[in-house]
Nucleic acid binder design. Sequence first.
DNA 1: GGTTGACAAAACCGGGAGAGATGTAATCCT
DNA 2: AGGATTACATCTCTCCCGGTTTTGTCAACC
Lengths: 209, 209
Amino acid sequence: MPSAREVLLATARDIVVAGDWERTPLAELASRAGVSRQTVYKEFGSKDGLAQALSANETEIFLAELAMVLESYPRDPVAGTRAAVAHTLRTAANDPLLKAILSSARGPSELLPLLTTRAEPMLEAARRLLTGYLTEHWLHLTTRDVGLVAESTIRLTVSHLVLPLAPIERTADDIATLVERLLPAEPRTPVRKPSYALSKARGSVHEHA
Amino acid sequence: MPSAREVLLATARDIVVAGDWERTPLAELASRAGVSRQTVYKEFGSKDGLAQALSANETEIFLAELAMVLESYPRDPVAGTRAAVAHTLRTAANDPLLKAILSSARGPSELLPLLTTRAEPMLEAARRLLTGYLTEHWLHLTTRDVGLVAESTIRLTVSHLVLPLAPIERTADDIATLVERLLPAEPRTPVRKPSYALSKARGSVHEHA
DNA sequence: GGTTGACAAAACCGGGAGAGATGTAATCCT
DNA sequence: AGGATTACATCTCTCCCGGTTTTGTCAACC
């Protein structure tokens, strides 16, 4: 039995993805979630509060997914990077909300400006995640070097998200190639407990297609 | 004696940079340029036509500058890249018009959407320029490899333009470092006539600070 | 190549009425 | 507690209506 909070987040997400956020009254959202309007205020304080919570939830889920993707390549950081980039591009392509969070892009329909604030912290979190992952594999490199590569990977991914020119798989291959050439030496794989992985998403409500 | 076309472009540029484009009537623009309103229609067809021409002019000037910057480092492609990136970031920081063209960013004041269309061709031109420059120095690399590096450089530069985190010089150093590591071998310098350089800006009207 | 003047059509203001949403609160239910 | 219902004040959004400005196109003129 999902809590009111959870079903509200899920419905809100559907509405945002459908591009109807500003158009949809809170009353309709609530009734569609099978919940009264006041419950929303109790739980989230305001409509914006709901959007914020949704954004935070989405961010958390995405970062957890990203960590899982990376974890599944514990011995091959280049393949891991490639998979992470591809996963990001693929997911964001089908998810206007995530895309908005990542790129802070004002789409044709002027997506909610609340998320703009979220963009930078989100990218920063992703950068830390990637940095940790890469550090596990190239122990001899300086923090600065790994950070540079991680940040470039993130920026390039977002860039290709905003202005895609090649198919996703091709882009992922390209970025992975860059990483491989940038950090070429000594791919030692310690295979210890990965300290970079974040806790799993707790408030997860929806499934990613 | 500057032609009416030139002085019109210059005045239009001032207005755009001041952020008053949509606010300013064509009549005022014309009189400020010391020219009648009809001359504008004769020369550019419409107000949008003026904006288009301005954008094209700006693009041409910028690309010519970029080519000159690169030409001044005929033997050191890493330093050349570094200088080109720094020049781009520095110029765009003081030039809302160029920034809009490069990033297609809707600023707080909702900059002219005409330029949005311009963004991709402009980046494509810059990519070709850089590709040609780099090819002069790393003859042994495949077109695909050089193209990859060039495109990444462009994308990273734009990314840092949109979301600057470090000082410009630092960013330029970082990107140059990436290029250096990506294309490490055999920096042969043919020093022949650089075929990548475009013709100088002809319609150039203003001076870049 | 340029100016002046006139002109229709379109875009851009306020202001005001009405509808619709948001946010707060009291009360009731279980 | 967790939630629903009803009520209500306050915003905001939208539509409409004029009046004004701006755009874009003439023609005639130098």
